[in-house]
Design a protein around this nucleic acid. Structure first.
Length: 471
DNA sequence: TGAAATGTTGGGGCG
DNA sequence: ACGCCCCAACATTTC
């Protein structure tokens, strides 16, 4: 006798371990794991699309190693699910929840539509430590400030990671697109070749990074994480973004390392909880991703042209401010950027250059392989001053002072800006291979001899604009 | 998860 | 011994 399979709809949970939706599906019998390339995927920025495809290839291999075929299809998610239900006789669909406004609307509609036709549809929490609605202030509201949020959750019990259940495959899986034949990011061109040299993809890579971090880096994390020229961070963000590792596992192992004496491990868990806080805010105030969180900022005179010459210089790492340019090129070459550098380039764009944070948000969404809708929105509104718990606008980073403090010997700057040393390191030269040809950049073209916006003038101008808004 | 300007303090050089 | 100045070091205020 053949029983109907259960569909497990994979979205941003590219892992087998600690996967509630997969566990629930497997408990019902044969599992049909499905990836749907809908607008949520094809609408991502170029670098995240590339990273998604690379992760998907590895994920398909992992399922294959367990004797299960992962089915990939393109199209509207509900239509694809309905087609698979019709083809396989599936009576049940499971998925792990997402929390950005578009995904929530899509998933709610799909859940209703499936149930209306008699198909069981169940969502699970595989993406977060805490559901956004399960963390409440004493007044019953949501948190707007990180520290009280942290205090509210730091002592909580979090469910232990779930073991991988035995998987039973569908005897004749429906047809799908081959993972090897995907071409989700043709627009990335040379960037993809360079990115692949700097990126480790997949759940196994994530496990290796976590273990290495906890064994060798967690102790000093609090003291060293701010330095641009050190490799002191876990670099797990790209894996969390696609769900190649579960936050529950990081929470459990992070606290365990802390108990074992790694002092910095608590700070590491704190950073993981920043991610939770970002989702908490995105859930309760979805406009954080598109509008000034504080509407009084709507009248601030930020420039909004994403193609203005100065903005182009910022994107190309040609502002003439070494730390800023190093960071922007690191972004283009690796698809990542040091956390402190993200604050510095954000401050320079929104304050010295007086450009709208949305320009930065969109550029990061196009370039970051660890792109995350909640973290990106919270970060940009934080740095711009328009968000909850934000840096006051008059906190203007001085990139030179910050460089002296956190890149004392200029190693970070020389690593990414080829014009600063001869011979230039390969990392810096890689930028010119990755950069679009239309930018017309060459390593020997000479570094800008003055910043596009002078640091002192830019600071004064930003503060004047701020004062104007407040008057 | 600032920076810069301004204010305060205290030690040392010196008349 | 004393007042005065200088200035670093730190603290406070302002943006």
């Amino acid at each position: 006798m053949t029983t109907a399979p259960t569909i497990y709809w994979i979205r941003r949970d590219f892992r087998l371990e600690d996967n509630p939706a997969l566990v629930a599906a497997a408990a019902e019998g044969a599992v049909l794991p499905v990836v749907i390339l809908d607008a949520a995927v094809t609408g991502m920025g170029a670098a995240p699309r590339w990273r998604y495809e690379e992760g998907l290839k590895v994920l398909a291999q992992s399922y294959r190693a367990h004797g299960v075929d992962l089915v990939i299809r393109a199209g509207d998610a509900l239509e694809v699910l309905r087609a698979l239900v019709a083809e396989t006789g599936a009576r049940s669909v499971h998925w792990n929840r997402l929390y950005d406004p578009k995904a929530r609307a899509r998933d709610a509609a799909i859940k209703t539509a499936l149930r209306d036709q008699g198909i069981a549809a169940q969502s699970h929490n595989g993406h977060l430590l805490f559901e956004p609605w399960e963390v409440e202030t004493g007044q019953g509201g949501f948190y707007r400030v990180y520290t009280p949020y942290w205090r509210a959750v730091m002592g909580r019990d979090v469910a232990r990671p779930l073991p991988l259940p035995p998987l039973r495959a569908v005897s004749t899986p429906p047809k799908g697109i081959s993972a090897a034949a995907l071409n989700l990011a043709p627009d990335l061109r040379h960037g993809a070749r360079v990115l692949s040299r700097y990126t480790k993809v997949g759940a196994a890579a994530a496990q290796a990074k976590l273990h290495d971090f906890l064994a060798h880096k967690a102790g000093d994390y609090k003291d060293k994480r701010d330095f641009l020229d050190l490799d002191a961070c876990s670099n797990l963000s790209e894996h969390l973004s696609l769900g190649e590792i579960s936050p529950r596992q990081i929470w459990a192992m992070g606290w365990e390392a802390h108990r074992q004496g790694a002092a910095g491990a608590e700070h590491f868990v704190k950073e993981l909880v920043w991610r939770e806080f970002a989702y908490h805010l995105l859930y309760h105030t979805p406009h954080i991703a598109t509008e000034n969180w504080r509407p009084e900022w709507d009248s601030f005179p930020w420039a909004t042209d994403p193609d203005a010459p100065q903005v182009r210089a910022w994107k190309q790492g040609r502002t003439g401010v070494e730390v800023i340019d190093a960071a922007m090129r690191e972004l283009y070459v690796t698809g990542r950027m040091h956390n402190r550098a993200r604050m510095l380039v954000g401050s320079y764009l929104t304050k010295h250059m007086l450009c709208h944070w949305k320009i930065g948000l969109d550029w990061f969404a196009d370039c970051l392989i660890d792109w995350d809708p909640a973290a990106n929105a919270m970060g940009w509104q934080w740095v711009a001053g328009s968000g909850p718990d934000a840096a006051p606008y008059f906190r203007v980073f001085n990139p030179e002072t910050q460089g002296e403090k956190f890149d004392q010997h200029g190693r970070y700057r020389r690593k990414w800006v080829a014009e600063l040393s001869r011979p230039a390191p390969q990392t810096a030269l890689d930028f010119f291979e990755a950069a679009p040809r239309t930018w017309g950049l060459r390593p020997d073209m000479g570094y800008p001899n003055r910043p596009i916006v002078d640091l002192a003038e830019g600071r004064a101008r930003a503060l004047a604009a701020y004062g104007e808004r407040n008057s």
